[in-house]
Simulated scan of single mutants.
Amino acid sequence: MAGEGDYTRLDLDAIKSMGTGLGNIKKAFDDIGKLDKYSDDFGHAGLADKFGDFADNWEISREKLTKEVDALAQIAKAAGEAYEEIDHQLAEAIRSAQDPKKREK
Rank of each mutant, 00 (worst) to 15 (best):
Lys64Trp: 10
Leu35Gly: 07
Glu104Gly: 09
Tyr83Gln: 01
Asp70Ile: 04
Pro100Ser: 09
Glu4Leu: 11
Asp36Arg: 09
Lys64Val: 08
Ile32Val: 15
Leu65Asp: 06
Lys105Gln: 12
Phe51Arg: 05
Ser39Asp: 11
Gly21Cys: 04
Ala78Asp: 01
Leu47Tyr: 11
Gln74Tyr: 00
Ala76His: 00
Asp49Asn: 14
Ile32Pro: 01
Arg95Ile: 09
Pro100Ala: 08
Asp99Thr: 08
Leu47Val: 13
Ile60Pro: 05
Glu84His: 07
Lys102Asn: 06
Gly21Pro: 02
Ala28Thr: 11
Gly3Asn: 14
Leu72Met: 07
Ala93Lys: 11
Ser17Gln: 08
Asp13Trp: 01
Lys26Asp: 02
Thr66Asn: 08
Gly3Tyr: 08
Lys37Pro: 00
Phe29Thr: 03
Leu65Gly: 06
Gly33Thr: 06
Lys26Ile: 01
Asp49Pro: 00
Lys34Thr: 11
Phe51Trp: 12
Lys64Asn: 10
Ile15His: 01
Phe54Cys: 02
Gln89Glu: 15
Arg103Cys: 02
Ala14Ser: 15
Phe51Gln: 02
Ala71Tyr: 03
Leu90Phe: 04
Tyr7Gln: 12
Lys101Leu: 13
Ala97Met: 13
Phe54Val: 06
Lys26Met: 06
His44Thr: 13
Lys105Gly: 11
Leu72Asn: 03
Glu4Ile: 14
Ala79Tyr: 00
Gly5His: 05
Ile32Cys: 08
Tyr38Asp: 09
Lys67Trp: 05
Thr20Asn: 12
Leu90Val: 14
Glu104His: 07
Gly80Tyr: 04
Gly19Pro: 01
Asp31Asn: 09
Glu92His: 09
Leu10Asn: 13
Asp87Ser: 12
Gly23Cys: 07
Glu63Arg: 15
Asn24Val: 03
Asp11Phe: 04
His44Lys: 15
Lys105Thr: 13
Gly80His: 00
Phe42Lys: 03
Gly33Leu: 03
Ala78His: 03
Gly5Phe: 01
Leu90Asn: 15
Leu65Glu: 04
Tyr38Asn: 12
Gln89Leu: 13
Asn24Trp: 07
Ile25Gly: 02
Ile32Arg: 13
Ser17Gly: 07
Ala79Ile: 02
Ile86Val: 15
Glu81Ala: 09
Asp31Pro: 01
Thr66Met: 07
Trp58Gly: 02
Asp36Trp: 06
Arg62Val: 00
Asp53Arg: 00
His88Lys: 15
Val69Arg: 03
Asp40Glu: 12
Asp56Trp: 11
Gly52Cys: 10
Ser61Ala: 15
Thr8Ala: 14
Ala82Val: 03
Glu59Ser: 15
Gly80Phe: 02
Asp41Asn: 15
Leu12Ile: 10
Asp31Ser: 11
Leu90Trp: 08
Thr66Cys: 08
Glu92Lys: 10
Trp58Tyr: 15
Asp99Ser: 08
His44Val: 14
Phe42Leu: 07
Glu68Lys: 06
Lys101Phe: 06
Ser17Thr: 12
Lys64Ile: 13
Ile15Asp: 02
Gln89Pro: 04
Glu68Leu: 07
Glu4Pro: 04
Arg62Asp: 01
Asp6Leu: 11
Phe54Pro: 03
Gly52Glu: 10
Tyr83Val: 02
Ala28Gly: 09
Gln89Met: 13
Asp49Arg: 12
His44Phe: 10
Asn24Glu: 09
Ala55Thr: 14
Asp36His: 10
Gly3His: 10
